[in-house]
Structures are given as C-alpha cells and as structure tokens.
Amino acid sequence: MKNRITDLFEKKGKNILNIFYTAGFPLLNDTRRIAESLEAAGADIIEIGIPFSDPIADGPTIQESNKIALDQGMHLSLLINQVRELRSTVTTPVILMGYLNPVMQYGVEKFFRDAAAAGVDGLILPDLPLHEYVNTYKSLAESLNLSVSFLISPTTSEVRIKQIDSVSSGFIYAVSSSSTTGAKKEFSEEQISYFKKLQSLDLENPFLIGFGIFDFKTYSQACSYAAGAIVGSSFITALKESNDLPFDIKSFVRSIRSK
C-alpha cells in the first residue's frame, strides 16, 4: 500500500491542515472520537501526541494535556490499540508524535513495527538524534512504509536543513519561531523571510509550518509559503473547553480554514 502521507502530498500538495492533539485527552478514550470528528471536519493529517511526563519543547497548554492524559492512565500500547481501532473508520493519514523515552521503553523497533501494523503512516520523534535514526532505524522505517519527519527551526543552518531534508520522508516540520509550542502572535517580518528562505531552498520534501498557527490568518499566511500548517495548542484548548466534541471540532476546523 502506498503511504497515505506521500499520497496526500501528491494529490493535494497545498493548504494541508495537520491537526495535533494529545492521546487520552480530554478523556482516556477520546482518541478515536476526536480522530473521527477531525476526518469529518476535513482535516488532512491527524497527528496524535504520545504523552510524556517531561515534554521540554512544549508550552503550558500541551504540558497540561500530557499530564491529564497520564493521570488518566494513558500509555503507548493503549494508544497503539486506539489507532488500530480508529482505522476501522478513519482513512485520513495518522502520525504519532512523541518524546523518545516512552518509545525507548516500549522498544523503538517494536514501536515502529506495531505502529505501522496498527495503521500509523508517519512518526515525529523530536529528540531522536538524526544520526541515530539514519544508522539504526531508517531502513526499518522504509521497509515498513512509515514516513519520518524531522523538525527544523529558524536557527537551523542551511547545511543542516539540507541534511535533514535528505533523510526525512513525508514532509519537513518547520517550526515557525524560536519557541516552545503555544506561542500566539502574528508572524513577524523575520519569520516571513525565514519562510521565504525555506521556499527558495527547493527542498526534496514539502514542508509544513507549525508552532504559532492558531487562526485563519496565521494558517493562510503559512499556507502561502508552505504546503500547509500544523495546529496544536489552540486545538487542545478548544477540546478542553468543549461540551460537544464533534460539533466543536467542526467549528474549530472551519475557523482555521475560513474567516
């Protein structure tokens, strides 16, 4: 089978909306329901976070969702089961995103295999060193048809961007600013010129812009330079405040997609 992420970028290639949420939040077994609602609302990629006790790249909103999920008993093998179950109804590409330690305790190779078998299409492991991925796991990921995306940030050098591009598959995750997740302000001129620079590099992989995408304006600005954007913290906030998940998820996605 073709990788759903690669397929998506080939067929659509523009205005791709990747929405992130934390597994097991707001309630332990909401993971599937949220994925179904996101698909119904027209999200292009569903990115599910593996909760961790010490998420150093995340701001307060995602930290809190991690803590709540863990307190409710969320763990990685449960998440893999949840993905397997949601695959009976959901056809949208699914990505798992998580810090390395829970994955390491599960067994990195076993995680790659089990995730792929459950219907996961891509992985993002922000603290997995590039060289360790290349030397140890890249050929496994390829054999399982899993795409693996790496992050770049405004301080990443051009040489390193090229290196990251050469080992990434699916897409590159371009962090919009030097910040943790959940920053909420308009893009500065500096950020826009960084997006333009990325555009001009002629990378092999498409890139999605994440961190600081929270409304129609930031989403459409990101989409004018990249293949699409990733929304996380503001979606988590919407989930937290929701009394009717399917309805509120639909309104949230609509508020990002249109004025």
Partner: peptide, 12 residues
C-alpha cells in the same frame, strides 16, 4: 550520553 534534544536546541 549523547545529545537527545529537539532541533530548536541543536544550534546552541
């Protein structure tokens, strides 16, 4: 050992 850090810390 090693350096298991998100990309945002890599340049530093």
């Amino acid at each position: 050992g090693g350096a298991y850090i998100p990309e945002m810390l890599y340049p530093n």
